[in-house]
């Protein structure tokens, strides 16, 4: 793995170096610059995670100082044998399955559409990205109104064309889909921008050459655009899966895990046990198990992207 370093204090303007020959001064400067981040990362992420890991082996309580009595693997055993825990895990995966495909495909379609525009491209870029900057609380509020039975806009629209609106957030069969729909609208912009950047990286002359050779628009899309977007797609899919697994805000705000626990996702479960029931030790164990799920997803991405780098 070669790294380019620009050394300012030597007459050699650019040199190729690697870890073995890099001078200690460079290292020091590097660590110094990374220090603010590393300090914050250790204090707010590594530290609490390790503390959480320790806590998961104790009967820790929110109502008491310290770790409490030792629980051994008791918390883990309780979580693994709990039907509620597994149903929360399944809801998390279900939400990920419901949101990831549309968030990738629709973002791609919109990006291709915007990329082809001759004028007003800035407008569509703005319009498609804008929802992403809205805070989750506002999104939840707006969609709760849109979904309100009887007076909500979505229900009214469906009735106008002669359909019966489902009971969006109150029907256990529809609640998760409704939360997913709101999420797709809300977070689409991020993937859209990544795809747009990926599209603009593709050299125009490839398309010109292809059309000279008589390739149709569709063939160009299939043989040039999609293959050259593969790296972007892998990145987007991975980021999206991880983001979807982290679902909490929308569920907490729109359904509070209901109706009758039909949308309670893992983080909501952890929140319920840790904060409502004060059982922080058990909640820590549940979140460690949940972290394994996210680690597995991240590992998948790591392997995929490494293979890709080797191919490249």
């Amino acid at each position: 793995m070669a790294i380019q370093t620009i050394a300012l204090d030597t007459p050699v303007p650019v040199r190729i170096t690697d870890d073995r020959t890099r001078r200690p001064a460079d290292n020091r400067a590097g660590w110094g610059m990374a220090a603010p981040f590393v300090v914050i990362y250790v204090i707010f992420l590594i530290g609490p995670t390790l503390y959480g890991l320790v806590m998961s082996f104790f009967n820790s309580s929110l109502q008491r100082n310290g770790l409490g009595s030792a629980a051994g693997l008791g918390n883990y055993a309780e979580a693994i044998t709990s039907a509620d825990f597994w149903s929360a895990m399944w809801h998390t995966v279900l939400f990920t399955l419901m949101t990831t495909p549309p968030l990738v495909v629709v973002a791609l379609l919109l990006a291709i559409f915007t990329d082809r525009l001759r004028r007003g491209r800035w407008f569509y870029r703005l319009v498609f990205f804008a929802p992403y900057v809205i805070p989750s609380a506002s999104v939840a509020l707006v969609f709760t109104w849109l979904y309100t039975p009887g007076i909500g806009l979505y229900g009214t629209w469906l009735e106008d064309i002669g359909l019966t609106a489902p009971n969006w957030l109150a029907d256990p069969d529809w609640a998760m889909a409704s939360v997913a729909l709101a999420t797709v609208w809300w977070t689409l912009g991020f993937n859209f921008v990544l795809y747009l950047a990926g599209l603009q990286e593709i050299p125009r002359d490839l398309y010109e050459a292809a059309s000279v050779d008589g390739a149709s628009q569709f063939t160009q899309l299939r043989r040039i655009t999609l293959p050259l977007l593969r790296r972007t797609t892998v990145l987007i899919v991975a980021l999206q899966i991880i983001a979807s697994l982290k679902i909490f805000d929308q569920v907490y705000l729109m359904t509070a895990g209901g109706p009758n626990f039909a949308t309670r996702v893992s983080l909501m479960y952890v929140y319920d046990y840790g904060f409502t029931d004060f059982r922080t030790g058990y909640a820590a164990a549940a979140s460690m198990l949940y972290m394994l799920l996210i680690l597995a997803a991240s590992l998948g991405w790591f392997i995929l992207s490494r293979r890709q780098r080797r191919e490249a």
């Binding site: 029907d171 209901g258 109706p259 009758n260 319920d272 409502t276």
Partner: peptide
């Protein structure tokens, strides 16, 4: 008030009131 007891029992009652169970 606002406890998991109310959450558990209330969820089940709401499901009856909504005709879901």
């Amino acid at each position: 008030s606002g406890s998991d007891f109310e959450y558990i029992v209330g969820s089940a009652i709401a499901a009856v009131a909504a005709g879901q169970s």
